[in-house]
Design a protein around this nucleic acid. Structure first.
Lengths: 374, 374
DNA sequence: CATTTCCTTCAAAGCGCTTTGGAAACCGGC
DNA sequence: GCCGGTTTCCAAAGCGCTTTGAAGGAAATG
């Protein structure tokens, strides 16, 4: 089809340039290729390829000459060709339910992931899906089309079918969180149970007896772990658990606001809140204020802080007590683990549980006197 | 490694099916290939390929049989091979400075982008870079390695060199925002100038005379546009512009808090704030409260709302007046425009300016009496 | 000087797909 | 029974890279 119809002479020359540039020999936007480079150097493709890829069989002087010329001419191997030839795609996949998963947590996480992967020139392929079925389909597609070398799986459920599927499909993957499946899984998680247990215990130490937990979505491992920590702390002090003081929701300002508002109307009212995220904390904060109460005095709050650069616990007013763990750092580390997996390290040898800091600031204080049964 | 441990017979048969599917001919994780499929069908690769890709030369009955078998066997073309053969990578690129660009705005934007691109099975390749130099390098790399078919460029500066580079490199791209470069550019932007002008005018109508603007980073087109709208509104009423009441910063709670705090100490103090984003609004809100003032009464605030699902202006307390434009929708539309570009539509025919709603809620009210010169 | 050895380089065969240029098979019409 | 025209299918040539198997030259050995 090239050279189909050309209008005026002027247009023609421009057109031709475009053509020669775009349709040089098939691909659109053809740049310098290995063949061109080899020709330019008076060497064979083989030699150039080997020189560039650090194979020992090539003369050091030649190698330098090749490298220098390639650099100067801005040669870069065609990604697809390279992938086809090597069988590696040089990318890792992340599939997200667009509706709610692509929130601030995910963007921080991606930032960490990407910063480490970028160093290795591995890029990350993000697929946005609508439904769970779409997500499964996306993994199957990834498997058979070999689009990515590995996948990052996040926010797993307790028995995560996606993880099971991935290991069935033999797609290497690393889990951000934990799950119980019948296969070796590489994972990285933070100690949600320990964090909640400590935070709850701390509030109990301060005299709080009615402690509300605004937890994440039911079924997610991290939510379950947090619940376990919360319940463990309560039961070790013999404090009865009141289901009305525990709720599961997305970590949004809005949901938290509504839930906290409702809980504050319960009598006896909670004197403390454990907020699942900083967004949640904002909602709780609003509910407290709207109820005419003061955070840190009438009602204590400890929030889980995933460390968002734009929402700093230290700069809130009052400053926010938190259980803290940088999700960005976790992302960076997961990238590292993924690279290890791709380098052949067995999944069962990879598993890290990160401790979580408890940082006390102004939002948590002693339980108000006599109000425990107000 | 395969066939390591298998429990029951039932598990074994399932396992075997998987194996025959995955390791059919050797490679690691080799799935069904076109050749296998063709063989399975007793047809040539050509015919199968054509049948699958909807070419007219193939018998309808054959086509159905092929499609059905492909579906049943879970055949998917190898992505790299397909890309190499067609010259299209089936992906669009987004490169982000990880440090601050990958924030809540970006994740919303990506969600929109991805939801539309996903429908077309185009995936989005995210590259995280540290510095501006890295970003440029990433584009050059993308160009010569043909990793992506197009690029999305966001938050451009007034004369954006990246845009110039991209059009020089002949990488198709679509701009989220606007810039002045000497080349046709496909773009989508919201009417920042109009939005600010209206918001400012509204505050002036309410009697405010000292109106602070917490604007975005200097040099970005959207910041400049907002400044223009702000200044235009002031000057059309003959209100002098006070540079002390305008600041440029990232849209973070923290920066906004500090800036607003400082501005509130100026005498005469501002009686109204224009906040560049909802994050900014949160910081302003805190500063107002800390100064012992009440938002909506002592100090009015109008914030720009990019519509974050987890930070709802309607649910704030007081509810927040906003200039609103969904960044997620913009992302979806940009995806659409990108697809158009890839389909061959000339860039100069693509350009959309979206109007911005002004939604008045409780955070903006009449200027407090007599305080204009307090 | 002939032979062996090593070093450097190359031609060619894939990787899995699309696509071009035919070749069979089949049709009625003469 | 032969011929143009369809219809349906195929073999083979790429796409740009890596990698194997082997050849050419220089240096070393007898």
């Amino acid at each position: 089809m090239p050279g189909k119809v050309v209008g005026t002479a002027r247009a023609a020359s421009l057109h031709d340039i475009m053509q020669s540039c775009l349709h040089h020999s098939g691909g659109l936007n053809t740049a310098m290729r290995l063949k061109d480079l080899a020709q330019h150097l008076g060497l064979s493709q083989t030699t150039v390829s080997r020189a560039l890829n650090g194979y020992p069989e090539v003369n050091e002087a030649t190698r330098r000459r090749v490298a220098e010329t390639a650099e100067r001419l801005g040669y870069r191997p065609h990604a697809s060709a390279l992938r086809l030839a090597t069988g590696r795609s040089g990318a890792v996949g992340v599939v997200l339910r667009g509706a709610h998963e692509l929130g601030p947590h995910m963007s921080e996480f991606l930032a960490g992931l990407g910063s480490r992967l970028g160093e290795q020139e591995v890029d990350i392929v993000v697929t946005i899906v609508e439904s769970y079925a779409d997500e499964i389909a996306a993994y199957r597609r990834a498997a058979s089309s070999q689009k990515v070398d590995a996948v990052i799986l996040h926010s797993p459920t307790v028995n995560d079918e996606r993880a099971a599927l991935l290991s069935e499909l033999k797609i290497p993957f690393v889990l951000h969180g934990r799950t119980n499946i019948n296969a070796p899984v590489a994972w990285l998680d933070i100690d949600n149970t320990g964090a909640m247990e400590r935070a709850t215990t701390h509030l109990l130490d301060l005299g709080h007896r009615r402690i509300a937990l605004l937890n994440g979505v039911k079924g997610r491992t991290f939510s379950e772990h947090r619940e376990i920590g919360y319940l463990a702390a309560l039961s070790s002090r013999g404090i009865p658990f009141d289901p009305a003081l525990m709720a599961n929701s997305l970590f949004t300002d809005e949901a938290a606001f509504r839930l906290a508002q409702a809980m504050l109307e319960i009598r006896p009212a909670p004197t403390a809140f454990l907020a699942g995220s900083m967004m949640t904390a904002l909602g709780v904060f609003r509910a407290i204020r709207q109820a005419g109460l003061t955070m840190g005095r009438d009602v204590s709050v400890i929030a889980h802080d995933d460390v968002f650069p734009y929402l700093n616990a230290d700069n809130m007013f009052p400053t926010m007590s938190t259980t803290r763990s940088s999700i960005r750092q976790a992302g960076a580390r997961l990238a590292e683990l993924t690279l290890q997996i791709l380098a052949g390290k067995p999944a069962e040898q990879i598993g890290e549980l990160w401790p979580v800091e408890l940082i006390l600031r102004e939002s948590s204080g002693p339980a108000p006197k006599g109000q425990t049964a107000a």
